[in-house]
Deep mutational scan, measured.
Amino acid sequence: MGFKLLSKLLVYLTASIMAIASPLAFSVDSSGEYPTVSEIPVGEVRLYQIADGVWSHIATQSFDGAVYPSNGLIVRDGDELLLIDTAWGAKNTAALLAEIEKQIGLPVTRAVSTHFHDDRVGGVDVLRAAGVATYASPSTRRLAEVEGNEIPTHSLEGLSSSGDAVRFGPVELFYPGAAHSTDNLIVYVPSASVLYGGCAIYELSRTSAGNVADADLAEWPTSIERIQQHYPEAQFVIPGHGLPGGLDLLKHTTNVVKAHTNRSVVE
């Protein structure tokens, strides 16, 4: 069995187990497998329904001669939608809004960016022009300005110390501490036991640490421990890039980060 097929099978099995364990909360999309990078042309966006009122959005972007996937989250909030992270750029984010209108038909009224990198804030200006209120932590807003990236308009308070959590509509926002970046936030959907790890969490097929220019490698494993301790009931975990899975993604990420750190020390 090929690795790609095995990865998709694991996603399907995880979703099936969740649907059985929580039949009222989960209505997993039966329309197909989780979209992969090879299936999404740059400039297009796919939506994948995880649970009743919960979707991931998947886009792709060219970077350094390669094409990478990027995940975000959409959560229903009454007759409105909360968006977590842009679709990595203005063109993708405009396509995301169009796809949401086509498939869901509810307005996106608020959006949260989970850290300051372009795959999370690139497209904020498109959201703002569409009347979406954009939010991020003060740290993310400051770092985005320093980096020359787009800056969300509103500040999220109460997320300055490791372990801080605040309720934001249908989700809980959690600051686990520094990891992929010093400002990275985690998003949890309690009604569906869905954990969105953003770039602080890796997919299972990833074996290298990737972009760690703004990471705190020493603190990252401790931050992941905080996530595990705060959300032990999480059933569906979405990484910032690639295929979702279960809580095993947290341990896998820790292993990859520690291996990278150990290699760096040896070198």
Results as ranks from 00 to 15, higher is better:
residue 74 I to E: 01
residue 219 E to W: 06
residue 228 Q to T: 15
residue 133 A to E: 13
residue 240 G to S: 03
residue 168 F to T: 02
residue 76 R to I: 08
residue 170 P to I: 08
residue 113 S to A: 08
residue 174 F to H: 02
residue 229 Q to A: 13
residue 178 A to I: 07
residue 253 T to K: 02
residue 118 D to K: 04
residue 204 L to T: 10
residue 245 G to D: 05
residue 151 I to Q: 09
residue 61 Q to Y: 08
residue 19 A to P: 15
residue 149 N to Y: 09
residue 16 S to M: 05
residue 224 I to H: 01
residue 171 V to R: 02
residue 82 L to R: 03
residue 227 I to K: 03
residue 225 E to C: 04
residue 173 L to D: 03
residue 62 S to A: 09
residue 28 V to Q: 07
residue 110 R to F: 07
residue 76 R to L: 11
residue 66 A to I: 15
residue 6 L to E: 15
residue 69 P to E: 15
residue 41 P to Q: 13
residue 121 V to W: 01
residue 31 S to Y: 14
residue 244 P to N: 04
residue 190 P to D: 11
residue 99 E to S: 14
residue 115 H to Q: 01
residue 186 I to F: 06
residue 267 E to N: 07
residue 72 G to F: 05
residue 106 L to G: 06
residue 230 H to G: 12
residue 48 Y to F: 11
residue 25 A to R: 14
residue 209 A to W: 06
residue 192 A to M: 09
residue 264 S to Y: 13
residue 105 G to E: 09
residue 242 G to R: 05
residue 147 E to N: 15
residue 246 G to Y: 07
residue 59 A to R: 05
residue 4 K to M: 12
residue 140 T to P: 02
residue 82 L to D: 00
residue 226 R to S: 07
residue 185 L to F: 05
residue 158 G to V: 05
residue 195 L to A: 01
residue 19 A to I: 15
residue 158 G to C: 06
residue 44 E to Y: 07
residue 122 G to I: 05
residue 131 G to H: 09
residue 39 E to P: 14
residue 86 T to R: 01
residue 104 I to P: 00
residue 189 V to M: 05
residue 20 I to S: 08
residue 6 L to Q: 08
residue 76 R to D: 05
residue 129 A to Q: 12
residue 175 Y to R: 00
residue 149 N to P: 06
residue 20 I to D: 15
residue 145 E to V: 10
residue 44 E to Q: 10
residue 18 M to P: 07
residue 73 L to M: 15
residue 257 V to D: 02
residue 175 Y to L: 01
residue 221 P to L: 11
residue 256 V to Q: 04
residue 232 P to I: 09
residue 35 P to K: 13
residue 232 P to Q: 10
residue 182 T to E: 10
residue 67 V to R: 15
residue 77 D to Q: 04
residue 117 H to L: 01
residue 160 S to N: 13
residue 43 G to E: 12
residue 117 H to W: 00
residue 189 V to G: 01
residue 209 A to D: 08
residue 191 S to P: 06
residue 207 T to R: 12
residue 198 G to C: 05
residue 251 K to M: 14
residue 136 A to I: 03
residue 78 G to R: 09
residue 98 A to D: 10
residue 211 N to F: 07
residue 15 A to S: 10
residue 264 S to A: 11
residue 224 I to M: 05
residue 168 F to I: 09
residue 12 Y to Q: 07
residue 81 L to A: 07
residue 214 D to R: 06
residue 244 P to S: 07
residue 216 D to A: 08
residue 147 E to M: 14
